[in-house]
């Protein structure tokens, strides 16, 4: 869990694959990289078996770049499409048995704090809508109630895409899917409000068609989880297979869904605002200077 874990043992450099050498020499470890530099440095995410044009892959790629300290981060996932890519990155990945991911992350996060003290070691859970809102729902909610300090990211494709298209709690009412031919009879779960009620210090929804926003939201969520409390990000990452979206229209669909039910929302507690401002120099939460009196009464 430091820069050293990726470095070569003496004498082994020439035997390592080119991709690995590039990652050690030109990867993001120990540097600050941003999405605007994409394409000019070696990313930690490698080739993976996810479908062509998958929006979830794009989101995971952006998330890996957004981690504030990738060399001090552990990702936790569970069954579902996402783990196929998350596990193919040069960031340690822990596989929680289906639904266990937030329980596993709770222990991991506590253990890392005992072992490393104040040195930040980030734990980030990335699981699908099924893993977070259905099968892992109890463990997710309880980790929030217990104020476990790690980030939970839901990769919401609104379907069980990995197993053939069953409806999930996050599927929209009325959606007809291959394994839900009569259409879903219940509303989409409102996990954002549940997260607020359960005590998350930072909650946001994003779609991947705005890379800078994805980057900003993930950075804030991970930083808040270091000291203040749990953070939750809900990302719309369409399944172009189960919803039959042509791959070159995936971003068009993301835009339409953003306008429909995934408008950008950000909730942050006052304590978290103060922490980000004082500790990490965020200026966006500072009180706006009062408008000069002349400007207010200018029309009089």
């Amino acid at each position: 869990m430091s820069l050293d874990y990726v470095k070569f043992s003496n004498g082994f450099e020439k035997f390592m694959p080119k991709e690995y050498r590039d990652m050690v020499e030109h990867g993001p470890f120990g540097k600050k990289v941003t999405v605007s530099q994409m394409g000019s440095f070696k990313e930690v995410l490698e080739e993976h078996p996810m479908c062509a044009g998958c929006a979830m892959t794009l989101f995971i790629r952006l998330a890996m770049i957004a981690f504030p300290n990738p060399e001090d981060t552990i990702t936790v996932g569970t069954a579902g499409c996402g783990r196929l890519a998350i596990s193919q990155a040069a960031i340690p990945f822990v596989y929680g048995n289906y639904g266990d991911q937030n329980g596993v992350a709770s222990g991991l996060s506590r253990g890392l704090r005992l072992r490393f003290g104040d040195k930040p070691k980030d734990v980030v859970v990335m699981a699908g809508d099924g893993g977070t809102a259905d099968i892992g729902f109890q463990q997710v909610l309880h980790s929030w109630f217990r104020k476990e300090r790690f980030t939970t990211i839901m990769l919401d494709n609104e379907v069980y895409g990995n197993t053939g298209g069953q409806e999930s709690g996050m599927t929209n009412r009325g959606a007809v899917l291959k394994m839900a031919p009569l259409g879903k009879k219940f509303e989409k779960m409102n996990m954002v409000e549940l997260a607020k009620v359960a005590g998350c210090a930072y909650v946001a929804t994003v779609v991947p068609n705005n890379p800078r926003r994805v980057e900003s939201v993930i950075k804030k969520a991970v930083l808040v989880a270091r000291e203040i409390g749990p953070s939750y990000i809900q990302a719309y990452t369409s399944c172009n297979i189960e919803y039959a979206i042509p791959t070159d229209k995936v971003l068009e669909d993301a835009k339409a869904v953003e306008n429909d039910r995934y408008q950008f929302q950000e909730y942050i507690t006052e304590e978290a605002k103060q922490y980000l401002t004082e500790r990490y120099g965020y200026k966006e939460f500072l009180a706006k200077p009062a408008a000069p009196a002349a400007a207010i009464s200018g029309k009089v």
Partner: peptide
């Protein structure tokens, strides 16, 4: 440089 930010595959569209 927008294509480098929107490609779902890592290390594929480079600049």
């Amino acid at each position: 440089k927008l294509c480098t930010q929107y490609c779902p595959e890592a290390n594929t569209i480079l600049y």
